[in-house]
Amino acid sequence: MKAVFLLAGVASLTLTASLAQASGLDVNINNEAARFAASGELKPGIELGGSLLSSDDNGDLTAASVQVLGTETARTYEVGAGPRWSHYDSDHGKGGGLGLGGYGYVSLPAVPKLSVGGYGFYTPGALTYQDFDHGSEIGVRARYRVAQNAQAYIGYRRIGAEFDNSDSETLDSGPLVGVNLLF
């Protein structure tokens, strides 16, 4: 079942890349998890992205997401907001739904190559399916531009969910390191 889910996730990332020119590839890891994400601009100000996550932080978790965000980028900030579809296959339950959220980063004037910010998405119970009742993902990052088209970062991520027949669970959490390649 996990192999089928991963295959479906790879197919959705391939579709993402075929619909939009890739503008970013992101990989982040920690001792219990790894995430691969790709995004591209459909047209100026509209970004399509997708990700795959594998974690054994609190039982086995495989998660996939696809999002469409309205974005704005200036010299000193980046922001984006919009819907995200997520699906979770975990030891605590299976399912997913449609949520809303976004991200924001600001450059620090004293260190122009350094930016800080975060992201958050919430999926309400009214827009879920299977065992998934509701959930959220939040993260913070400090990013440093190490080359013209590469950012290295450190951060923290927490994915929480409630499934039918279970209490709220933290599916994945902890510090991480990553690299974002920009095209």
Results as ranks from 00 to 15, higher is better:
E78S: 15
E78M: 11
E78V: 01
E78D: 07
E78P: 05
E78N: 11
G80H: 11
G80F: 07
G80M: 10
G80L: 10
A81I: 15
G82H: 08
G82A: 08
G82L: 13
P83K: 04
P83N: 05
R84E: 14
W85A: 13
W85M: 14
W85Y: 15
W85H: 15
S86N: 09
S86L: 09
S86V: 12
S86H: 07
S86E: 05
S86P: 10
H87I: 11
H87R: 12
H87K: 10
H87E: 06
H87Y: 11
Y88G: 00
Y88T: 02
Y88C: 05
Y88A: 04
Y88D: 05
D89F: 02
D89P: 02
D89W: 04
D89M: 02
D89R: 02
S90H: 03
S90P: 08
D91L: 07
D91P: 05
D91M: 03
D91S: 05
D91V: 12
D91T: 14
D91A: 11
H92V: 08
H92C: 01
H92A: 08
H92M: 06
G93F: 08
G93C: 08
G93T: 07
G93I: 10
G93K: 10
K94V: 09
K94E: 03
K94S: 04
G95R: 06
G95E: 00
G95L: 04
G95T: 01
G95I: 07
G96T: 14
G96E: 03
G96Q: 04
G96N: 00
G96H: 05
G96D: 01
G96W: 06
G97A: 09
G97P: 00
G97I: 13
L98W: 11
L98G: 13
L98Y: 11
L98D: 03
G99L: 08
L100F: 13
L100I: 11
L100K: 12
L100M: 10
L100A: 10
G101V: 14
G101M: 09
G101F: 12
G101H: 10
G102T: 08
G102M: 09
G102K: 09
Y103L: 14
Y103S: 12
Y103F: 14
Y103K: 14
G104F: 03
G104S: 03
Y105S: 05
Y105Q: 04
Y105M: 07
Y105F: 11
V106Q: 00
S107V: 12
S107Q: 14
S107K: 08
L108I: 12
L108Q: 00
P109W: 02
P109V: 10
P109K: 01
P109D: 06
P109L: 04
A110H: 13
V111E: 08
V111F: 13
V111N: 09
P112R: 03
P112C: 05
P112Y: 02
P112I: 05
P112S: 01
K113S: 12
K113R: 14
L114R: 07
L114C: 08
L114E: 01
L114N: 05
S115T: 05
S115C: 11
S115E: 15
S115W: 05
S115V: 04
S115D: 15
S115R: 00
S115G: 10
V116R: 01
V116N: 01
